[in-house]
C-alpha cells in the first residue's frame, strides 16, 4: 500500500507540474464566470430568455460533462500513458519497487482527481458567480447532488480513456484519436436509439435524467449497473494492455 500511495502522489504531481493542466483549470473557472456574466446581461436586457437561469450551475454541468470533461480526461490519460512512452519516462516508474497493477491504479486515481477538481472548480465558481450576479438558484442541495451523480459516469469515462490510450505510443496521436472515437460514438448514438440507450457516453450528464423525469430507483439502479459493467470491462481490458506493454 505504501508504494501505491507513493505513486499516487507522484502521478498527481506529474500531472500538475505540467503548466497546461493548471491552465485548463483556470480556463474552466474563467469560462464559468464569463458565461454567468453573459446570462446576467441578457437577463437584464431581454424580456424573453432562452436560458433557465434557475439552474445555471446545472446547465453548466451539462455543457461541461459532454464537451470539456472528455477533452480534459483524454488529455490527462494521453499524458500519463502514451505520453510517457514517447518521452521514454514510463520506464522510470516501471523499474521502481511497485507492481504494474498498482501503477495502473495510481494513474487512474491521478486522472480521476483531475476530473474531480474540475467538477469542484465549476461547482464553486458557477455557484459564486450566480450569487454575485443575482442569477437565481432554487436549491443548492439539488445542484450538489447533480454534481455528485455526474461524478459516477465521469469515473467510467476516466477508465474508458485509460483503456483507449493503451493502443497508442504517442501522446498527441492518442489524444486526437480518443477525441475522434468519442465523437464517432456520440454521433452513432444519435442515429440509433438502442445504441444510444446502452452506451455509457449517453449518461455523462446522468443527473439531467432525474431532473427531467424524476427519480425512478429501479431505472437509476439499472443505469448504475450498466455504468459499472462498462467500468469493469474497460478497466480489465485497459490493465491487460498496460501489463503487456513493452517499453
Amino acid at each position: 500500500m505504501d508504494s501505491l500511495k507513493a505513486n499516487v502522489i507522484n502521478e498527481v504531481r506529474k500531472l500538475f507540474l505540467k503548466k497546461k493542466t493548471l491552465a485548463y483549470l483556470i480556463l474552466m473557472a474563467m469560462m464559468s464566470f464569463l458565461t454567468a456574466l453573459f446570462i446576467s446581461n441578457i437577463q437584464a436586457k431581454l424580456i424573453f430568455i432562452a436560458v433557465n437561469s434557475i439552474s445555471y450551475p446545472i446547465m453548466l454541468l451539462a455543457i461541461f460533462t459532454n464537451s470539456f470533461l472528455p477533452l480534459f480526461v483524454f488529455m490527462a490519460a494521453s499524458d500519463l500513458f502514451p505520453g510517457e512512452i514517447a518521452d521514454r519516462t514510463l520506464k522510470l516508474v516501471l523499474t521502481m519497487p511497485i507492481s504494474r497493477f498498482k501503477i495502473y491504479i495510481s494513474k487512474l486515481i491521478a486522472i480521476s482527481s483531475y476530473a474531480l477538481l474540475n467538477f469542484c472548480v465549476i461547482f464553486f465558481v458557477s455557484l459564486l458567480s450566480a450569487l454575485c450576479l443575482n442569477i437565481k438558484i432554487t436549491s443548492i442541495t439539488n445542484v450538489a447532488l447533480s454534481y455528485l451523480a455526474d461524478l459516477v459516469p465521469a469515473l467510467i469515462l476516466v477508465i474508458f480513456a485509460s483503456f483507449i490510450v493503451q493502443f497508442f505510443r504517442s501522446g498527441s496521436t492518442a489524444l486526437i484519436s480518443s477525441i475522434f472515437i468519442f465523437i464517432a460514438v456520440k454521433t452513432l448514438s444519435l442515429f440509433n436509439t438502442l445504441v444510444n440507450n446502452n452506451l455509457f457516453t449517453t449518461y455523462l450528464n446522468w443527473s439531467s435524467l432525474w431532473l427531467a423525469s424524476g427519480t425512478n430507483p429501479f431505472r437509476e439502479l439499472n443505469l448504475l449497473l450498466l455504468l459499472l459493467a462498462y467500468g469493469i470491462i474497460f478497466f480489465t481490458a485497459g490493465y491487460y494492455l498496460f501489463d503487456r506493454n513493452e517499453v
Partner: peptide, 16 residues
Amino acid sequence: MRNVGSIIETADVYEY
C-alpha cells in the same frame, strides 16, 4: 526491485 537501481537504454529523467 526494492534493492535495485537502474538506468536502461538511455539516461532519461523527467525534463519538466
